[in-house]
Amino acid sequence: MTPEPSGAAARPLLVVEHLKKVYPTATGGVEAVRDLHFSVPEGQLVCIVGPSGAGKTTLLKCIAGLLPITSGRIELLGEAITAPPKAMAVVFQEYGRSLFPWMSVEANVELPLKSAGVSKPERRAAAADALHAVGLDDAGGKYPWQLSGGMQQRVAIARALAYKPKVLIMDEPFAAVDAQTRADLEDLIRVIWKQLGVTILFVTHDIDESVYLGERVVVLSNSPTVVQDDVVIDLPAERDQLTTRSHPQFAALRSHIYEQIQRAKHNRGTETASTPTVLRRH
């Protein structure tokens, strides 16, 4: 019933296979991620949820090529990720630290393009388009710290969009903004996703947010992390803060994921480590 975005049936865009990440320490190492697999087809909006300390950020940094993996394989467009890939952009939770306060909003958005060698008029136009897409047409000349938290995160999203990635990775991007702003930003992400057809990997600890946003929710176990559950969100494509959230299916999915998270808290990657990814349909 959910109209899948184009290309969903094709080969997965992003593949995570037997991912293991051990942080080396003096006493031999801390295992953050044990044995993780999942794949994301092109154009999908996937949410990743897990109890706090589930190694969500570790997983994202591995996928983003910012952290070397211990074993396993992460593939984007068929190529193993060993360094930050060109087709990927990351939006961090800490927008205040991720945006550079010494640069104007415009310069922040243009910087990745500048470093990629895009000509000045071209990156000007790309920045203007991206800022328009997030509803910040007039903020280009300001500094990030002159904007509210929600607007700053919009700038960070605009910077990612201007970079024209195939995959957009978002690490709890709305955890630090107030509820109203958060709802607006969630709707913005849905709009951007639909308009641009970009693949989005959205990490959150908020179950409601994951159900509201995603086409699919991957539930992670406690650290050392494995995939606890993989849930298809078969809600109507047109999401609305009021009607979607009061949809009976929303409530069912929400409580299902809630239960999984509760179970995940006690699952330290031991019981289901070898269990293949379960796809549940409602």
């Binding site: 930050p84 630290r97 990629a116």
Partner: peptide, 10 residues
């Protein structure tokens, strides 16, 4: 975070 942002944008 600033450094990781810069790295992620290559």
């Amino acid at each position: 975070v600033a450094n990781e942002t810069a790295r992620s944008y290559r």
